[in-house]
Design a protein around this nucleic acid. Structure first.
Lengths: 188, 188
DNA sequence: GTCTATATGTTGATAGAC
DNA sequence: GTCTATCAACATATAGAC
């Protein structure tokens, strides 16, 4: 393979890691699990990543890119209100997955939030970016309480994700997302 | 229980486990950690608990008892509305701890929610009990949407806990608890 | 009842053959 | 570049001395 400088193994490793970190958590996922799931020999993982934390950093980067995609889709809408509603619709697509394994970003933030590692900051930055994006939209609607509203919205999404996981019921998350849509629609 | 008076080691073990599970998570806490923190030799842990999961079950039972205490304090209030406000006040006392290590029950529910163990049901029952207690209070206020309101309240507490942990800011949780109080006060 | 010593398996990570 | 073989550390759990 000359055109493709490297194989797709690195990408396969990150994809498998993201999936496993979501389903089982970072601490409960071994490198052997990631290697098996991505069809890469165990010892070979270290050719692509120096440490397990480096894999986590790549996974967080994938989540960041995914959130950026959701934001870019929302930004095709003409008004700030519609942009927020678009983001809520995008989140609603993942309800079933969240009811089964929780919010991938929220879970990582809670898990790394309990550790003293550089990953903590990187994971938390995901939630912070989300809050700030929503805040900008509320500010664009002329709300002086944009920050508080953004925290309320993201907080609701995260909390409903926890409850949906605990009760194994995606309906809880759907219900809260729908409620937040009516809240946003009802704002002056 | 006749001979159980001999030592308080079992209680010390559960206290240390609850603290460590909260600060680091269940999976990241070793039996050696629990033994050291409670001043009990490692190998001796198994005299009091057959497995690590048995310790977790005892920790969950402690959380259940703590929540029961909060509910009993609230039930000294004359009206359902005041009972809910009392519970929110009780939760507000733990804001700093939650901003540092997350909600102890929520964290366990997320962690065990990703596993296929009997502990999953036991932990989730904690959140379910909380939802149902709040639901009864809202029903006592004559609200036909008691269940939805209860989910909204518990969801807000859990989500704000995640955000407070991620941003290391107890103010976020305090703010959302205060907002829920005004919501409850404003209900017909 | 209490504790030491250890069994047994798994982890993240490394060395070096091809 | 890719992979096999293996390391040292640590996990949970057990056996048995005192």
């Amino acid at each position: 393979m000359i055109a493709a400088k490297h194989s797709d193994k690195r990408e396969r490793l990150v994809d498998a890691a993201r999936e496993l970190f979501h389903r089982r958590g970072y601490g409960e996922t071994s490198l052997a699990d990631i290697a098996r799931e991505s069809g890469v020999p165990v010892g070979n993982v270290y050719y692509y990543f120096k440490t397990k934390e480096d894999i986590a950093a790549a996974v967080i980067e994938q989540h960041r890119a995914h959130m950026t995609g959701i934001a870019q889709l929302a930004e095709t809408r003409p008004t700030a209100r519609e942009r927020i509603l678009s983001m809520l619709d995008s989140l609603a697509c993942g309800c079933d997955s969240i009811a089964h394994s929780g919010c991938p970003m929220g879970s990582l933030c809670v898990e790394f939030g309990k550790r003293d590692t550089a990953l903590r900051e990187e994971a938390n930055r995901l939630l912070l970016r989300m809050i700030e994006w929503v805040e900008r939209q509320f500010a664009g609607m002329g709300r002086g309480d944009a920050r508080a509203l953004a925290i309320q919205l993201v907080s609701t999404v995260q909390g409903a994700s926890v409850l949906a996981l605990a009760m194994r019921d995606p309906g809880i998350l759907r219900q809260e997302l729908a409620r937040m849509k009516t809240v946003v629609e009802g704002l002056a």
